[in-house]
Amino acid sequence: MDFWPEFLASSWGREFVAGGIGGIAGIVAGYPLDTIRIRQQHSNKGGSAPTIFRHVVSKEGPLALYRGMAAPLASVTFQNAMVFQIYAILSRAFDNDVSVTDPPSYRGVYLGGVGTGAIQSLLLSPVELVKIRLQLQRNISSTNIHRGPVDLARSILKTEGLRGMYRGLMITVLRDAPAHGVYFWTYEYMREQLHPGCRKNGQESFRTMLFAGGLAGVASWVSCYPLDVIKTRFQAQNSAKYTGIVDCFRQSVKEEGYRVLWRGLGTAVARAFVVNGAIFTAYETALRCLYTNNSPATMQTENAM
């Protein structure tokens, strides 16, 4: 009976809930653009985002833009909570000489982000593999179509084993570790530039949250985009077309040129701004509400009642 109030009264509990809310907001806001990005990256014919959007909607219906969303949505609460918790711990661990009343240094922020990205890849890699393969399904009348993430996961485990579920883990780590360092560094730097003093007092405006979060997402995606293209192509294949990450890179560049490594960047950047602006705005707003509603004074009033 008392679990939920006690859970929200703890710093860990509030971070968990706020992280989950932020993650859900980000996925819902940016998933259609993510589907378009994945199709651009996987296609060997190119195609602009508006062209792919019109094709998907006309041939498969608007709901096709949300195909595969259940997989990341189901894991996003835990994943985002883990990301923010690990980041908070690691950014402080790299800054032992900084007072707990002061925000971590930018060095601690970057190194904490790198460690966070590497660790969270263990959870994210199989989720993204399932998501990518569902997003690339086109012929909804095919007998080989998978009706959802659970059905597809079972099929992968049956045909490729547990190793198949973690196909692309190494490149996910290589993508996410430095990208998360850039992500958190850019967010902390930009929020301070847009609203001086907010890193310490936490009083930034919604506009600051939105723009700092959006720019952080754009910076992180630009820094890792070629790796993301190779990851998408490698994870999308359930056959032996590519023997490894390097082979996937070589074949892709040989067949389509180096431009293939940046295919879909415009869509990814637009999505990154929307998604990460939503994530940080929802996260910071939820955290404020939870801290206000579960402050010692509030808790004492509720207990008295």
Score class of each variant (00 low, 15 high):
56 V>Y: 07
33 L>C: 13
75 S>W: 07
44 N>L: 12
215 L>I: 12
1 M>E: 05
222 V>L: 14
103 P>V: 02
192 E>R: 11
115 G>S: 06
291 Y>F: 10
60 E>K: 12
80 N>R: 03
207 R>A: 14
249 F>E: 06
2 D>R: 09
181 G>T: 05
254 K>S: 15
237 Q>M: 09
6 E>L: 13
156 I>L: 15
89 I>V: 14
124 L>P: 08
33 L>A: 15
74 A>V: 03
190 M>V: 15
278 A>Y: 10
305 M>W: 06
285 T>H: 02
27 I>K: 06
27 I>R: 03
120 Q>T: 13
215 L>D: 00
106 Y>F: 14
263 R>E: 05
254 K>P: 04
293 N>T: 10
222 V>A: 11
176 D>F: 15
266 G>S: 14
63 L>Q: 15
225 Y>W: 12
184 F>D: 07
28 V>F: 10
164 G>H: 07
29 A>V: 01
131 K>H: 14
266 G>Y: 12
292 T>S: 13
58 S>P: 04
290 L>E: 10
146 H>C: 07
127 V>K: 01
235 Q>H: 02
107 R>N: 05
117 G>S: 10
12 W>P: 05
55 H>I: 07
191 R>T: 09
255 E>R: 11
140 I>T: 04
203 Q>I: 03
20 G>M: 07
42 H>G: 00
53 F>E: 01
69 M>R: 01
112 G>R: 03
